[in-house]
């Protein structure tokens, strides 16, 4: 990743699009504080002194324990973050999951993502970072995930290839290419920006 200059307002919904390997995942990891930038800095004026507490990340690895059930996963993370574990059943219902005994290892890709979103809803982060929330999903899963993302309380940054599904959830969008921001605009123009990039590269 090379040059990114970006500001995100509280409660803003931002969509990041761009071709594979353009730096979307790296950017999210840097924003999450898990990856330290080799140059430059990230500041979180709206968040607490230790911003980690207020940041939620759903990466390619969604952040769960494979051997535990969905409810146990939420219970474990609630206990670790000092959150009231009571409304777990309701949380799971919000994302369309049942509180069964089944281990998460047996879940489909869509169910896993919905569980990860339930964990984010539980943690109520001021900044939620979602990496490809619609990957490997059937239409039902996409609807469930969209609903859960809408329910997130704070600012949300979504990196996604599925512009048609992600754009309605966002207000602003940026297009990244080769580690740089090539375009910033309204989310409903994202698809047009995507086409423009393809056109420039002579792929369409």
């Amino acid at each position: 990743m090379a040059r990114v200059d970006l500001e995100v307002a509280a409660h803003e919904r931002l969509l990041i699009i761009g071709p594979n390997g353009c730096g979307k995942t790296t950017l999210l990891n840097v924003l999450s504080t898990l990856l330290r930038p080799s140059a430059g800095s990230v500041s979180y004026p709206g968040l607490a002194k230790n911003p980690r507490k207020d940041i939620g990340l759903m990466g390619h690895d969604i952040g769960i324990y494979e051997d535990l059930s969905a409810a146990d996963n939420l219970r474990v993370f609630a206990r670790m973050s000092d959150i009231d574990p009571a409304p777990i059943r309701a949380l799971l219902a919000t994302v369309g999951l049942e509180a069964g005994d089944q281990a998460v290892a047996k879940y489909s890709a869509g169910m896993r993502r919905r569980l990860a979103l339930a964990a984010l809803l539980q943690a109520q982060p001021a900044l939620a970072l979602l990496d490809e929330p619609f990957a490997q999903m059937d239409p039902g899963g996409i609807a469930g995930v969209s609903k859960a993302i809408k329910a997130l309380p704070g600012a949300v940054i979504i990196a996604s290839h599925q512009v048609q599904h992600a754009a309605p959830l966002a207000t602003r969008a940026i297009l990244m290419d080769c580690g740089q921001i090539r375009w910033t605009g309204r989310a409903d123009q994202a698809e047009a920006a995507w086409r423009a990039l393809h056109h420039e590269r002579g792929e369409l």
């Binding site: 040059r3 375009w183 605009g185 047009a192 920006a193 423009a196 420039e200």
Partner: peptide, 15 residues
């Protein structure tokens, strides 16, 4: 850190 490349040319997007 590697040298920064030149600032990118903005993409032209029609409304």
């Amino acid at each position: 850190a590697p040298d920064l490349p030149a600032a990118p040319t903005p993409l032209k997007v029609e409304d």
